[in-house]
Amino acid sequence: MRLNVTVNGERRQADDVWEGESLLYVLRERLGLPGSKNACEQGECGSCTVYLDDVPVCSCLVAAGQAEGREVRTVEGLADGDALDPVQQSFVDAGAVQCGFCTPGLVVAAHDLLNRVPDPSDEEIREALAGNLCRCTGYEKILDAVRLAADAR
């Protein structure tokens, strides 16, 4: 089937989409946006997190056809040209990135948190990031990055 979807503000079209495939697959394999990562395909790791109509979701659990006519914002759509979003910059500055596989999902989840709660408590940060797994950092630097981003915004 043909899929029409607005991604990072641009109207995009994908052809020959299999009806059962995920939005994550469409983004990575059909639209050339490999920022969102595929680590589990079962909603457990959060590395595929994107905004769907402004709501953060696991794109591996959205059927491609459910995104028809909707707006998707991926990690690629957060920076303003060459200027990183404050959340992205804070992950760099806080050293919150090791292998980087979890980073795109965490950045989107943290971005959403700070939109809703500009000055989150540690509890709120932990709760908001509970669906994002990181196998490298031990999370402390990630928490630092979110606090730093909250101050920077």
């Binding site: 059962g20 395909e41 059927a63």
Partner: peptide, 19 residues
């Protein structure tokens, strides 16, 4: 929401005729 259905599709546990 697809949070049960898509897991089954992604892992090929289910191939329905239609969604």
């Amino acid at each position: 929401g697809g949070t049960d259905v898509m897991v089954e599709l992604n892992f090929d546990h289910r191939r329905p005729e239609a969604l």
